[in-house]
């Protein structure tokens, strides 16, 4: 068993506790490492590539979940520790971004807000339903620029752009854009400096 394995399309790893494989529709740069194929348990994107990861990245106990049209992009020298990324559209992360333990990043609400459409969605998702009949659900890209630092247990919701070098304080819930170099805290996250 290894502590970490090189991320390559289609790979399976001797000693991986989760008996899965890395999807074929990904691109990964050199010296990018991952702890387990478990990260792709909910990777359902049909696009190619649906995940683009740069060089020198570390992915530890993170979840890279995509719906059929979801895309995740991660730059160089990023470190994701126990983060959950769930994409229905596009989550784009720049280079040298650190994501601390317990963070969730989503680019959709994944279900309609309207009560009637929500009922239709639940019926389509039920064991007797047809997923093709799901109503259209709002999604909006999440863009995290270079050198952003995201603290423990933070939550980043859909449509947010976090500017270059910004810091998201631990426990923040980010629902609106963060300017480059800004520091936000709280729920909803507000600029503190």
């Amino acid at each position: 068993m290894e502590h970490l394995y090189p991320l390559c399309p289609g790979a399976t790893y001797e000693g991986d506790w989760f008996k899965g494989s890395i999807p074929l529709n990904i691109v990964a740069g050199s010296n990018t490492m991952i702890d387990s194929t478990n990260s792709f348990r909910e990777f359902h994107s049909l696009l190619n590539p649906a995940l683009v990861v740069g060089t020198n990245v570390t992915l530890w106990r993170s979840s890279l979940a995509t719906e059929t049209n979801g895309v995740i992009e991660i730059g160089d020298y990023c470190y994701l520790s126990n983060a959950a990324l769930v994409s229905a559209k596009r989550i784009s992360i720049g280079s040298r971004v650190f994501i601390a333990v317990g963070t969730t990043i989503v680019d959709s609400d994944f279900h309609p807000l309207d009560p009637l459409k929500r009922m239709e969605d639940i019926l389509a998702l039920s064991p007797t339903g047809n997923r093709a009949n799901r109503p259209v659900i709002g999604s909006a890209e999440v863009i995290i620029e270079d050198d952003v630092w995201i603290g423990f247990n933070a939550t980043i919701l859909k449509g947010v752009r976090i500017g270059k070098g910004a810091v998201i304080e631990p426990g923040s819930v980010v629902v609106s854009d963060v300017p480059a170099g800004g520091r936000v805290s709280g729920n909803p996250a507000k600029l503190v400096s």
């Binding site: 020198n56 570390t58 020298y77 990023c78 650190f98 601390a100 050198d147 630092w149 304080e169 631990p170």
Partner: peptide, 20 residues
């Protein structure tokens, strides 16, 4: 440990580049 969150940008960059 705050894991670099209180450090200036150049120091955070160096941390990540060293780890790789």
């Amino acid at each position: 440990n705050y894991m670099g969150g209180n450090l200036p940008l150049h120091a955070r960059r160096a941390l990540l580049e060293n780890i790789s």
